[in-house]
Design a protein around this nucleic acid. Structure first.
Lengths: 227, 227
DNA sequence: GATGATGTGTATCATAATGTAACAAATAGT
DNA sequence: ACTATTTGTTACATTATGATACACATCATC
């Protein structure tokens, strides 16, 4: 699955899906190293591969004719990105943190017999993806700015952060603009909200990208729908 | 695919996906008739079937612990609903207009060999679903109330309405509350916005559910991101 | 036809989030 | 090291949307 940064921790999905999936046994894979800023594919491109993120981070986004952008999802280790429709990609995909990617031919989706194990793995990833996107709908449609931001940080902490002695640390691989476009907010609102969390003593910033979460539970509480 | 009521007409997907898909040849299907108000499945239920909507309309929704609701999608003829994750449904599914449904065993997703044609059909539906949901993200995250409403009506008109002599007609199978929860608005805002469209001469209401679209193009123009 | 339940439309007011702007901090380029 | 450029933060004014309230339909049931 590729994380849609919603209430992953609140769902009933089994723990194994949180871990980097074991690589299918007989995969004739080719692993590719990429750098931040590199574009993996763009909306409308012929979809020849699906990519499994091994390390690093990628960003999936769509842009409208008028220039407004929506970040669909961030891809972290274990996520699969690049699900095609009519053999084409429907988002842009950019690397935001140097990433290793495992490329799987798109044809595996069409011809299961070629590699049953990998096929099943990709179908499962697609189902997880749909489920995760449904979570994200709730966030976009029915949460306030602070709920969205708390939710985002909370899931990010769970996903790519560390917690020791009840204190969390997480490095944000994306800029404020990416977060805003992911949550359906403006950069100013994201910034303001994070500042408020800091004023409330919930978290602290060493740099703008490095966050120490003093009270992960408070963050989680805020991310559930308030009241 | 099941429509997420976004800019379907604006994407580059091939026309065939707009039509009711031909039924897989060797499907041992069971068709089921349902009435408005009936619940097909609820969030958390074991997912034994995927349902292909043949006639009528269904509503997919999730509700939070605090009672806020997000309508994930409406399912119309040709759409497939009930994609599972970890063998469970992750939304509620209710019939909103008497519907005929074709039930396909969930196991088809796991064991392609059992019915390769149906399997491929379902996988394709899942890909379309992901693509459609990505459209919907743009709507929820980056559109104003009037853009959302125009977009919704415009897609609905294309999908289940009729146009003759440049004038469109569409019957809304869902109530204002459903529309609001789908678009991330309140019923009041939906009502206000539709009233505004009426005042602008874009559309007219015979009943609250029956809309005549005098100017489908204007509606479509409004649904693109404004300016 | 009365009755109530449900859904819808309109008005008013409150407020959360945005837009704008100015500034600070970090990063890249020379 | 110094400037240019991007990125992030903060303050204030504005506005779109939400909340509340109530009137008006429509429909089913008695």
């Amino acid at each position: 699955m590729y994380v849609t940064l919603s209430e992953t921790f609140a769902t009933d999905q089994c723990p194994s899906t949180r871990e980097v999936p074991r690589q299918p046994a007989n995969d004739r894979h080719l692993t590719r190293a990429t750098r931040a800023g590199e574009t993996l594919f763009a909306e409308g491109d012929a979809a020849n591969h699906l990519y499994e993120v091994v390390t690093g981070a990628v960003r999936l986004a769509r842009v409208t004719i008028t220039g407004r952008r929506q970040v669909i999802a961030f891809g972290f280790p274990g996520d699969v990105v690049g699900f095609p429709h009519n053999r084409r990609y429907h988002t842009d995909c950019d690397v935001i943190q140097a990433a290793e990617l495992r490329a799987h031919p798109r044809s595996i989706l069409d011809t299961p017999a070629d590699n049953p194990i990998l096929h099943r793995y990709l179908v499962n990833a697609a189902m997880a993806e749909i489920s995760g996107m449904q979570d994200h709908f709730l966030m976009l449609g029915r949460k306030s700015a602070s709920e969205k931001t708390a939710s985002f940080l909370s899931v990010l902490l769970m996903r790519i952060g560390t917690i020791s002695n009840g204190v969390g640390h997480v490095h944000l691989p994306m800029c404020r603009g990416d977060i805003a476009d992911f949550l359906g907010l403006t950069t100013e609102t994201v910034s303001r909200t994070i500042s408020q969390f800091r004023a409330d003593g919930i978290l602290g910033l060493t740099t703008a990208q490095d966050i120490t979460v003093f009270d992960p539970l408070a963050l989680r509480r805020l991310s559930e729908l308030e009241e």
